[in-house]
Write a protein that binds this DNA or RNA. Structure first.
Lengths: 415, 415
DNA sequence: ATACTAAGTTTAGGTACTGAACAAACTTCC
DNA sequence: GGAAGTTTGTTCAGTACCTAAACTTAGTAT
């Protein structure tokens, strides 16, 4: 079940054991603490098989015994659980952003054990240097004794750019000037553990979605993550998997048309959501309206106007600036138009609002909720839970870590 | 592999054989005619295993030998293929509409062997009578000798209404006054073969998507089917599976907002696509504009105006009525607004235009294509193939039949 | 102490896969 | 035409993994 074994594994066709190992691990994780008998009953496997597989899992540091229950006649049941903390196995999720590399070490239960942040060196970032940097962080994060990475289940990496999650190639990353970099392959050679690479916003989406649930079990129903910031993106998760699309660009939420004759967007279309509700648009709108408003009622002084940044604008909203609040409410209406369409179309069970704009909380959530009531169909709307993202800058790392961990209890049929 | 065997099958855990049977069947179907050696090479299984599984498949009438090739030194290879026609196994797809029950018998290659259509009796249709009617059609369609349905792999049923495809329950079918009918269960008891029940538009979508491909192999990428008629619906197929959603209402394309302050829709929202581009809206628009137009240039005479039906309107478009054409072109613009959003969001490889309105062909397709060029993002747009539906009233039946057949070469891990 | 009960382990038997040897059915070449 | 060579498909011994049933372990009940 670890990487070395996978590579010199028999002949890819002994699916049985993998399926059953995964089944037991999955059951164990959702019902823990649990005894072998109950695992047998839950999974439909025989007690003998469960014993045999549990033995293996204990050997691999994935599972541990935690004493016995009191009995009501008969031998006491020995409770098992997924082995938590540093003593068990773990995974690391990395997020690469413009200036930082954040690494988050999670245990088998998806809990954070340690984090590490490196500032990126100025100037061009070489793919090889990134690999080097990640290798160093891995050494920092896992226990120093374990230099073989044997405790490490795998590593995930989120990158701002277009990634093919299947091959793990970075197709384009404008910020770093990369194109067609086989980063997954490079990392696997260096780290000797399986690596998963994906877009950082999608990784954050996975994180928020998985951790919204209090269990790492995935729902089969669609769940949507919305990232509201300078740009507006999203990720749709169906049956626990990210929708990627033919060219891996699925999730473009910001270019849904919400005002057919509205302002020109950078993409060439008129009235894209991003053009009216992206942060730059909100700042412009604020400046436009502030001319009509009495300065005394504003949190932002007219002197700041020429230098008004998105961050400062968001502060004003949080500080209760009524004009900023109005601008956000207007944007919420526009967001709701697109969101209502997507809710009707995908019928999700969960929508998570993420990105900088989402941090203003109720100032955004309330008007969106209201507008959705007018715009969305009653049945799908009644099924959807609308919440705000809660993991902050840890989201991507956690999503990647949890994804790696989850793969232990999934079997991918190779086709 | 047939239904009786499935029920008293060992103990649900002999997954190995099922996986490998499915793998061989899948490979065989895409690469046929093919010999055992090549199957072994393609699937990675040993020659011994392939021989053993092929023997089983031949016994089950799923596969047949079709003579040998000429050799270039060495024993000649015996070519195998999926057994076509009545001699092989087959499936039946039924579509229930307001007045008709259409049954389509397809062979293992997805080709139509026979069709049958019954007019429904007037008045309330009892679920039990439907089961009875389907049972009769099954008897008509399969060879009379085979009264045990042994040749029948399974049956699919498409119903206009809200269906839970997992349980096969009809949640609501307004046209028939049904609610919460376990139609799948009822049919399985009667027919003694596996039954799949789903919404008829989604079944049609599956049909069009599967048959657009010239092979029954499913692409992993998203594909979209649009049904343009009185109402506007859609179905999104991802990894060969229909997106259903929490409450099984996914695909509501008609209630995407395309004109935020537009006309009131039946759903309560303003400016839904359906309210501006559904057939009733087009007819109204035609009547509205016809007052300004010179009657001589119209195909429809003013005398018809009070009785103008959607069907007549569509005839006028096909006849080249310039005003009707203009109305369709306007609608195409609105459709393109919603479609561009969905293309950006889902990044599909295929969009199929279906439903009555799609039958006007280029009058609709051209303006949509043009508008998409302005509205959709270049990268996703460049990947999408936009075509018109081609199966007509057979679509749903074919989709269901093909779905049943496809299940032979798929393994669903039970969780 | 003895009987009962339930959890977990051991064992014998069955299924399904694989590699290697073998049989079958060709072509080639002298 | 027969020996040699080639390739396909089958048979067989060995292995992995599952199950049911018997057994061991470790408790409670009386």
């Amino acid at each position: 079940m670890n990487y070395e074994q996978d590579t010199n594994q028999k002949n890819s066709s002994t699916i049985q054991r993998q399926v059953n190992q995964a089944k037991i691990l999955r059951t164990l994780r959702t019902l823990q603490p649990i005894a072998r008998v109950d695992l047998a009953r839950e999974t439909g496997l025989s007690k003998a098989t469960v014993s045999s597989i549990v033995d293996e899992l204990v050997l691999e540091s994935l599972v541990e015994e935690i004493g016995a229950t009191t009995s009501r006649g008969g031998r006491r049941r020995i409770l098992l659980r997924v082995r938590p903390g540093r003593e068990g196995r773990c995974a690391i999720g990395f997020e690469l952003s413009r200036n930082n590399l954040i690494g988050i070490l999670v245990d088998l239960e998806g809990r954070v054990i340690a984090t590490h942040r490196d500032l990126l060196p100025a100037g061009y970032l070489n793919p090889a240097s990134l690999v080097e940097l990640i290798q160093q962080q891995v050494q920092h994060l896992i226990t120093p004794q374990d230099s073989t990475n044997r405790g490490l289940v795998g590593v995930g990496l989120g990158i701002p750019g277009l990634v093919d999650p299947n091959t793990g190639r970075v197709l384009v990353a404008v910020q770093f000037g990369w194109s067609d970099i086989p980063i997954k392959e490079m990392l696997e050679i260096q780290l000797k553990v399986p690596v998963k690479v994906m877009n950082n916003v999608k990784a954050a989406a996975l994180g928020e979605v998985i951790y919204s649930n209090h269990s790492m079990e995935h729902s089969p129903n669609p769940r949507l993550y919305l990232s509201l910031g300078e740009g507006i993106g999203s990720a749709l998760i169906i049956e626990g998997k990210l929708l990627s699309g033919v060219s891996h660009t699925a999730g473009e939420f910001g270019h849904i048309t919400v005002a057919p004759n509205g302002p020109l967007c950078t993409c060439g279309n008129m009235g894209c959501l991003e053009a009216v509700a992206g942060l730059p648009a909100l700042v412009s709108r604020y400046l436009e309206l502030s001319r009509l408003e009495e300065p005394s009622r504003l949190t932002i002084t007219p002197g700041e106007f020429p230098y008004l940044t998105s961050a400062r604008f968001l502060e004003a909203v949080s500080a209760g600036d009524s004009l900023a609040d109005r601008v956000v409410a207007e944007a919420a209406d526009q967001i709701a138009i697109a969101l209502a369409g997507v809710i009707n179309f995908t019928n999700p069970e969960l929508v998570i609002l993420g990105g900088p704009l989402s941090q203003v909380g109720a100032a955004l959530l309330n008007p969106i909720t209201q507008a959705l009531r007018r715009r969305a169909l009653p049945l799908p709307l009644s099924q959807v839970r609308l919440i705000t993202a809660s993991l902050g800058s840890n989201a991507a790392g956690l999503g990647l870590g949890a994804t790696i961990i989850s793969q232990l209890s999934e079997v991918v049929l190779s086709r």
